[in-house]
Amino acid sequence: MTTPLLQVEALNIALPVDGELRTVLHDVSFSLEPGRTVGLVGESGSGKSMTARAVARLLPPGARVRGRLEFDGASIVDLRGEALRRYRAGDVSMIFQDPRSAINPVRRIGDFLTEALRINGGMSSRAAGARAVELLAEVGIADGARRLRQYPHELSGGLLQRVMIAATLAVRPRLILADEPTTALDVSTQAEVMAILGRLRAEYGMAMLFITHDLDLAAAVCDETIVMYAGSVVEQHRGASLHEDPLHPYTAALAQARPDIDRATRRLPAIPGYPTTAYEVPPGCAFAPRCPHAVAACTTQEPQLVPIGDGHSRCIRAEELRGRMLTGPSTTEGVA
């Protein structure tokens, strides 16, 4: 087994809000090997984006971090000065949901792409320009020379996201943090962007942390998927069997709540209530108040992440419910 590139262990993060520290991540652990993709799936407030931000060292000031967060054996939290700059400039790259907000609108694509090559790579601007055209070709943009002269507003969202990926390639990072990279794009460009990311990962052995709210997409592109709820990991699942064999009731409920493109149902099995945030979690299991399978013990006993099948589940009834969650008691309609 390869040594992990990214190792997160018992990560707890609290942020200051209105003078008090509020937990946003609770006991998050996972690891990521080179060349592999781990998906972080969850709804708002689940902590998936916060996890990525912690890895990128982009936490807001005043954040309290506990637990281990290591990149290539070195603690990310302890990085300072030059080492931190090197880490951010060369080791990890982030791809954002909305490429338009991550690029300076008044500078040409060429300036944006060649900047890192000229400054960090020490290239002449002619060489950097040639390299930029190569990079664009790698992400499937054939007429690179013309694109370099254009401004961001002249490109569609899908094209711009590919430019962002090309910029990532310029530094050839070892870890890509992709935060909902296709959510703001048209459906028809999603496959293309994901295919490019997959190919680059295979070619260059990059590791990818892929953050998404889309269970189906995560199952399709990730080697391992981590489902988060209220700041905790509730399920960790290898392979693509997330839907057929959910290990946690929340995963099952999410899969069922999503409308099916192949058939309409009279009523969707909605999850009652609203997602909670980590700092409001009741005693016991965070999902218990919305869970169709909850029993008395769920509200008193804090569940641990235990191995089951080809993954882990943070549910005290995981073993007993396995295989029955998708057909379990019909969920009650909820109104919050």
Binding site: S44, G45, S101, E180, T277
Partner: peptide, 17 residues
Amino acid sequence: MTTLTAGEVEVTPPRRR
């Protein structure tokens, strides 16, 4: 988390005065 998760909306709002 409200300010950090652009594009995600379902955040339990802070109950403050």
